[in-house]
Design a protein around this nucleic acid. Sequence first.
DNA 1: AATGGCTATATTGTCGACAATATTGGGAAT
DNA 2: ATTCCCAATATTGTCGACAATATAGCCATT
Lengths: 222, 222
Amino acid sequence: MLLVTEQPVTASDKTFIQLRQDIVEGDILSGSKLSETELATRYAVSRAIVREAINRLENCHLVERKPNVGARVVALSPERLVSLYQVRESLEGMAARLAATNMTDDEIDDLQALLNAHLQTVQSGDTYYQEAGDVDFHYRIILGSKNDHLISMLIEGIYHLIRMYRVQLGMAGPRVTTAFDEHRSIARAIDNRDGELAEILMRRHIFYTRNNLEQKLLEAVG
Amino acid sequence: MLLVTEQPVTASDKTFIQLRQDIVEGDILSGSKLSETELATRYAVSRAIVREAINRLENCHLVERKPNVGARVVALSPERLVSLYQVRESLEGMAARLAATNMTDDEIDDLQALLNAHLQTVQSGDTYYQEAGDVDFHYRIILGSKNDHLISMLIEGIYHLIRMYRVQLGMAGPRVTTAFDEHRSIARAIDNRDGELAEILMRRHIFYTRNNLEQKLLEAVG
DNA sequence: AATGGCTATATTGTCGACAATATTGGGAAT
DNA sequence: ATTCCCAATATTGTCGACAATATAGCCATT
């Protein structure tokens, strides 16, 4: 169940993906400065490569760059979380609606099978499930929309920033099983080809997730 | 009433903006290949600058790049138009809803004043009005949403691709005055702080615009 | 002691050259 | 005549060096 969609070919690709992972997973702290020379030595590539990677990360909203000054990893804040999740709610809600129309029967079967696999993982108590699993569920529905611009804006645009909030704030406790049930409901609506319901359920699901993360963020920062 | 929001500071900025304009306005044909060396001589900068500009254009969805092969200007097609406008409808509908809540009274007054100015232009028969005017109306509502991620995705993301369709397909005839009336209705809903209605009207407005462009595109290409 | 300006330093922006990869064209074999 | 392979060419990818800009620290002045 691996995501093999992005295959790095150039050195810039590899550095971009590596740097992105280091930021998302907190190896490079949120809010810290990104020195081009430092990263160049760290990843053993030239500064040009690092610059290109940073430019790409800017489009993912993972870093902010100021001309002649440099780039910083974005800071995680409640305001930004709300702003991000408002957009996410709108776009993924739309994706769910479109997926109910545009996914093939086979793709829907695969989606159900995926959820069955997730159920196993949830029951086994492996909390790490949420990390790749939830993402993968949303990932498939996004692709199922079959709308190229929507897919691009979500996957290449804000996907990893969303991951960054989840990974750094953690996602455990009762929310895991609740979220799983919500996924079930969404999949059922899609299976019934009920786009309207799928959109409503997806929006609601994302809204709940936002509240959960917002609370964790307020606890963490104060 | 000029948009002075983006101030180029580096050579890369200037080249990016210039190249973007040349693509949007059709000086560089849709679908054509972008040679780095050719553009470097054309704009009298180094290849590194051109590369950075092309990378940025990729995020605007104005060019598509293949590793080790090169970049091409995107092709305009009915399918892509539909895909783009589905996303636009969702995002700008949301922007209108948020603007009804988040714009200040002064900003709303300015918006009304802008429409009055547009009315003058429409009545004087200057069809070029639609170009900057319509854009500016939408631009203000997007900013009025006060949602940073939404603003970024629309203005830096798909704004210029939308412009490209409009500029290259032209926008004249009865649609101009109809669109103006629709703008009036949206502004009125925002003035009444009726976000729900503003969203519905904005979505409808964008849907009509899409149909208009789609028809022109089918006429043009066959 | 505080502030303002200047110099030294570090960092980013830009460039031209070289390396690696794709494309094109011609020649040979079937 | 067609197809396959190989060499020649052109284009993109990568690098290190230099230029321009911002930052930090020190000294002089008040």
